[in-house]
Design a binder for these strands. Structure first.
Lengths: 303, 303
DNA sequence: TTCATTCTTCGTATTTTACGAAGAATTGAT
DNA sequence: ATCAATTCTTCGTAAAATACGAAGAATGAA
């Protein structure tokens, strides 16, 4: 038997009664008759299967279950109030909001560079970013909780979700490493990579397959010491000196400055493609359009 | 004009429609007619003063305001579901729960020692602790959100809240300090305290007055370099070597182990009294009673 | 364009919520 | 112990909300 949905009307009465310690006073505060409240609290208790209030002296005090319920009720009604306030205050039609989902696999620095353009638009834009797995973000996009998802692979056209992928250009990939490692493997690159410790994206990432093909074609077999879903985590491990790690060549300077890691060698012909995924085939949101059309400041091969 | 309270019933329909992207499908899922939903969403929009959904192609997508509302709705209905689950799963009558409020001013170690006994009761007790200011905690006690408040001062009997203070015994107070400071001021204590850096509780704390009287009676005037509402903060500053600080003598060992601070000298005749404040004159909650009657393991003068 | 689908509006049925009246249970005072 | 006062419940009915059938309007897709 599936229990019916919670009746928030009943819950509110219970909540007020618990605050006032009395049905009578709650009735006064709410401007309704005592019987009304009495009945509805009884209904709430029945639907939950637990007593929520018990008389003690002249007051009504919450039972153990009632107290638990109150912790939820507190939050629920606080949220309700905040929501009203937020909607009233926000001139949500004035400021343009852009909700962006950023795939784990996308290097944060790339994400930043891609989104940079929205701050140079004529109108003020409030950027709301959410990180997560590709599939999660795609679902939120479909629900219009997000305006666009930035990621490293296109959405499957055959999927049950009606979304559209817009390529943002191809980026050349370089292997980076902490200074000591970088010095060691920079010589004779790429011939000496066999046995070199390496950090790679997990299978399923588009880049992974390309890198493996590149390694094979160069006849080298490094030791894969770690696989990462999340690009930021991958570079963190790389910075710590645990292995060579791939990243877009254009980030060379940023990686040196932020992570203290140096380039080891370019993976010729390995290219990562980034995408903006949106709901419409023809992009409407001006900020998304700006991202789509941005003349990205670093070298980039048009796809 | 005060806006009417949020109608959670309407909000739920809106929430489902946003998920489904269509009134029709939402109606199917909810088992009601489309008109019903249509009307109620219109009412919700009117009461909030903003459009929440806008047609786009064949779908209904949330507006900017709608999206904001959805972030709240998500939380609200998640809480509702969790509440039902929590109430169903918890055998809230089996496990005894004890909600304790701990005054900022109370040394955490004392609080721990006072509450220790509840874990040795025959029945399993789930301890729920909340920290805060004295007045805040007292209000929560009055609402029965807490079973007992542990604090360093009794509640005013003349207050508008009907609560009762149960003394838990008196504790002798010692001045402590980081090792270097302690060595310096331990000699000739208490005669050399004039000009010594000292950290004290804020005025209003019961201990503060006693310490000042003690200092005066010994004819010394230290330099008060800090006043703290929160005892944990006070000891943290003390540990950093910023000054001498008072704490119960019985915590000497704990303070040495945890904070690396050493005793400087005992404040003879200065005694801190701790209290358990509850709702009933005669305590009913077995765990509270245990705290009240615990033969505290360390030296303690019965009041 | 035409057709199909979806969302609205209107009037009425149903359900939920609210209240007056009366009864039961408890407290606090006499 | 008894009484008065207060509080919470239980009825039956009134008011309000929610829900639905029917019909009209708007929009996208063929």
């Amino acid at each position: 038997m599936k229990s019916a949905a919670l009746n928030y009307h009943h819950l509110r009465y219970f909540w007020v009664v618990a605050q006032e310690g009395s049905v009578t006073r709650a009735a006064k505060r709410l401007g309704v008759a005592v019987q009304t409240i009495s009945v509805q609290i009884a209904q709430l208790e029945q639907s939950l299967g637990k007593a929520l209030l018990a008389p003690q002296g002249r007051r009504l005090v919450p039972t153990e279950a009632g107290r638990l319920a109150l912790t939820y009720a507190d939050q629920i009604f606080q949220l309700g109030e905040h929501m009203g306030a937020a909607l009233r205050e926000t001139d949500s039609d004035r400021t343009l909001r852009l909700a962006v989902g950023i795939s784990d696999a996308l290097p944060k620095l790339i994400a930043f560079r891609l989104m940079e353009v929205v701050f140079h638009l004529p109108q003020q834009v409030r950027l709301v970013c959410r990180e997560g797995e590709f599939d999660t973000l795609l679902a939120e996009l479909a629900l219009h909780r997000l305006d666009v998802v930035l990621t490293d692979r296109a959405a499957q056209p055959g999927g049950n979700l009606r979304v559209f992928s817009h390529p943002l250009g191809e980026f050349e990939i370089t292997l980076f490493a902490a200074p000591a490692l970088a010095r060691r493997y920079r010589r004779d690159f790429p011939g000496n990579l066999s046995g070199a410790p390496m950090l790679l994206p997990t299978r399923g990432n588009a880049l992974r397959g390309q890198i493996e093909r590149w390694l094979e074609s160069h006849g080298v077999a490094p030791l894969i010491v770690g696989e990462f879903e999340d690009s930021a985590l991958l570079t963190t491990f790389g910075r710590a000196g645990l292995g060579l790690f791939p990243a877009p060549s254009v980030l060379s300077e940023d990686i040196a400055a932020q992570l203290g890691a140096e380039p080891v060698g370019v993976l010729a012909d390995v290219r990562e493609q980034y995408y903006a995924i949106s709901n419409e085939r023809r992009i409407r949101h001006p900020a998304v359009e700006a991202i789509r059309n941005a003349p990205v400041s670093w070298s980039r091969t048009e796809g």
